[in-house]
Structures are given as structure tokens and as C-alpha cells.
Design a binder for these strands. Structure first.
Lengths: 231, 231
DNA sequence: GCTGTTTGTCATATTTCTGTAACAGTTTCA
DNA sequence: TGAAACTGTTACAGAAATATGACAAACAGC
């Protein structure tokens, strides 16, 4: 699970960047800063932030122009952008929304508001995994209450087992290699032994009990698969 | 809790805002004003008004669009909205009610009527769980008298613990992260350490006593959950 | 200005989880 | 049949998350 969201702040004035960064960090975001469109582009390509806060007025490439460029490139097209505009520039709003900006905030703004907007935009942009409980052969996982039950009996899973099961239940009938599972369940940049997956599979199977452990199938030479079909 | 209700008036025409504000202030409400959706959003996030009076027609983000946005965000979703429409725009009524607007008034209107509607909407909106006592396994919370009792024995809770418990009792069987709890119980985006939540959970559990502390469950790696189900 | 609460933060215990290594079992296929 | 290649299990120490108790600042009521 990627821990905190990374936000890239693009503004040519360092003090403003700092102020924003402090506010966001207090709210639990990870901040990156860039003082120009050029620098920003580099960072975006390198670290793929979860969203970009972009100052409207910047020497060189203007904010809006930069935004448009980001939208054009498939790699960066779906990074949400919030534009920072100064009071009185509101006429540009329409142009901004047209070029795919997700929201914009007029300076001055309160940190509180900034964080609120950010949250909204991020939520809207992050197609949140289904909120509905999933049931397979009387095994139920409820993402909302964070519970798993087998024939109404609650099961006790550790966090990783829970994520693993959730992943499997939403990706059935497909074999995943250990390395894929590490990427998709543990999250990209962690270094753990592939065999660790085995151990968690084991723990999950044990937790599921005899009634359901058949759902997690070993695909020899490849990895594991979750399926209700016995094959 | 501020004694008088705060009403945010959103309209791009200052004279109209003023007129409304005067009327409401005479009726004992506290008024805030905003001349655009942008400004309004800022105020809402910052001061959390008890309700919003929203002009239908505004340059930029239209009233209805704004209303929809407020509804989407959990933080602002249950702030009641009254829409102000000009005569002849009544066809929009249906659309308005669909997007979660609580009432609408056609201009011109008398101050008397405005206040009456406002009162109705506020009364209707407030009882949203803030009227009836809730009881779970002999643990009772009475929002009106602001009291909590376990098997008829009164419990002594601090204000924050009370709000926390109230929130939990009205949102059962759902795991909340610490950050969500801070947003939803502490209100707005107060800058408080996430660990602080643990401390208040602790205090609440202690206050609930052995008889009931099982209701507050730790969801490791995620946060907390309130549920009468044992697991 | 005092006094008793309430609150947010720390520092410190406790508890629970995780990743590894080591060894045991299985399957594959010369 | 036997070795090689995989996978299953178990135990365990270090890591991570949570629980708890204490404290000082902020507050509310006198």
C-alpha cells in the first residue's frame, strides 16, 4: 500500500512553496517542489506524483500552458492538477477548466481549504476500489467495515493477509507471479524476498480454514491463483 | 458550539446579499457572505456554516453545480442548502431537488418567508441523528441532554469523547482511519497529530468501562471501528 | 486571578505483524 | 529411482503499530 500521497508544488516563489509544503506536510502529504515548468516536468517523469499544484503565473512557461502539455502526454495525462490563481485572474477560470484542470484555488487561501480541495480532487481522481462487499461461496469480505467472514463466522486476518485476500477476490481466475503480487499487493518499491509471498499465502490459507482454502491455488512454476473453480 | 446558527449567503450581487443578511440577522442568525462559488467553498471549509443559501445563477460555477460538489464531499455533504431562483426558473426545481437541495425559494421573497423556510430546513436537517437517543446493548447516548449512560448508570465523558462516541454510534460497522476521524469528529482539517486519536479512543474506552469497551474495536493498520459484533 | 477540566503530545510499555531462514514435502523428468 | 526444482511449514527476532500513563498548555467557570 503506497503510504502517503505525493504532491508536487510548482511555483517560482520559494516562500509560497514553503508555506504550502508545510501545510500539506502537516496534513500528511509528501511534498515535492519545483520552481519552474522545466523542473516540474523532470520531477513528474521521475517520481510520478499523485497530483500537481500549479501556479498560474510563472516566468517562462505559464501554468496553463504547462497544464495543457501534461494533459497531452499519455504518461502524465491523468495526474490531477489544481491551479493556484491570484485574485482577479478569475476570468481565466474557464480556460483553465477547459484545459483539463481539476480545480483551482484563488490566492489567498487558508491551508485548511487547500487541504480540503486537495482531498476532494484526489478522491475524485482515485477511482476508489469498490465499496461493496464481495462474497464467494459464503466467504465474504467487506471493505467498508474491514471484515472477513466465512459462513458468518468472523475470520481474523492480519493487514497484509487482508489486502492479499482483497486483491485476490477482486482479481479472480488469474495466476499471478510472486513478483506481481509483491508489486500489486505490497506496493511497488519494497524490497522483500519473493518467498515471503509463500508465507503470507500460507497464513491466508490457514486463516481461511479448510472450508475455503481451496480458493487459493498454487500454480506450480508460476505463482498463485484465486478461483472458486476446483481445477 | 456557537449558540446561533451560521448561514452562508452565496450570491454575486452584493445588494441582495446585504438584504438577506439584514433579514437573517434580525432573526438571530449569524451571516457570512460570499460572492462566488470559490469564495463560498473557502468559507465552508473554514467555518462550517450550519446552512447555505445559494443563488441559482452565478457567473462561473453555477449554483447547482456547486451544490452538487458540496454533496459529493463527505465533509460538506450534510450541510443543508436552500436555493434562490428567479421567477420563471422554476423548471429547474426538479433538477435542484435531485441534486440534494433541501428547499428553494423564488425571488422575490419576503424576509418573513425566507426565515420561515430556513427554520424549517434547519429543523428538518438537524434531527439527522441529532435528536433521537441511540441505544446499543444498553449503552445509551442522548444527543439532546448530552448524556451517556451504561445500564442506566451515567457515564462521565469529556466533550471530545462525547462527539467521538456520537459519531461512532451513528456510523457503526465501518472502519475509519485516524485521519478520517480527525476530519469527521474534530471537524475541518485541524492540525492535530494522528496519534491523538489513539489517546481519545483510550479515554473513551476507559469511560465506557469493561461492560462496553468491546464496542470500540481496533482495526490494525487501518484505524478503528465501532460495532456491536464481537469480531 | 484561581481552580478544576479538557486536550494534545510525549515517552514508554505492550501487542501484533512481518520477513527470513531453515528444513520438510512434493512434483518433475532424466 | 533419484536429483533438481519448487512449494509448504514452522519458528523467531526485529519491526511496526497500538495502548497507556504522565504532563503542560489552553480553557472554562468562578
Amino acid at each position: 500500500m503506497p503510504s502517503s500521497k505525493r504532491v508536487l508544488i510548482v511555483d517560482d516563489e520559494a516562500p509560497i512553496r514553503e508555506m504550502i509544503a508545510v501545510a500539506l506536510e502537516m496534513a500528511g502529504y509528501e511534498c515535492l517542489e519545483a520552481d519552474s515548468a522545466q523542473a516540474a516536468h523532470g520531477l513528474i517523469v521521475d517520481v510520478k506524483p499523485d497530483m500537481v499544484l500549479l501556479d498560474w503565473m510563472m516566468p517562462g512557461t505559464s501554468g496553463i500552458e504547462f497544464a495543457r502539455r501534461l494533459r497531452k502526454d499519455e504518461l502524465t495525462a491523468d495526474i490531477p492538477i489544481i491551479m493556484l490563481t491570484a485574485k482577479g485572474e478569475e476570468e481565466h477560470k474557464i480556460k483553465g477548466l477547459e484545459s483539463g484542470i481539476d480545480d483551482y484555488i484563488t490566492k489567498p487561501f487558508s491551508p485548511r481549504e487547500l487541504v480540503a480541495r486537495l482531498k476532494t480532487v484526489l478522491r475524485r481522481a482515485t477511482p476508489k476500489g469498490i465499496e461493496e462487499p464481495i462474497t464467494i461461496d459464503s466467504l465474504t469480505l467487506d471493505p467498508v467495515s474491514h471484515r472477513v467472514s466465512s459462513e458468518l463466522h468472523p475470520l481474523d486476518l492480519g493487514p497484509t493477509e487482508f489486502r492479499l485476500l482483497q486483491f485476490f477476490m477482486t482479481h479472480q481466475d488469474r495466476a499471478y507471479s510472486r513478483s506481481q503480487l509483491l508489486d500489486l499487493v505490497w506496493g511497488g518499491n519494497v524490497y522483500v524476498e519473493e518467498r515471503t509471498v509463500d508465507v503470507h499465502i500460507r497464513r491466508l490459507r490457514k486463516a481461511l480454514g479448510k472450508r475455503h482454502d481451496y480458493l487459493i491455488q498454487t500454480v506450480r512454476g508460476t505463482g498463485y491463483r484465486f478461483s472458486s473453480q476446483t481445477a
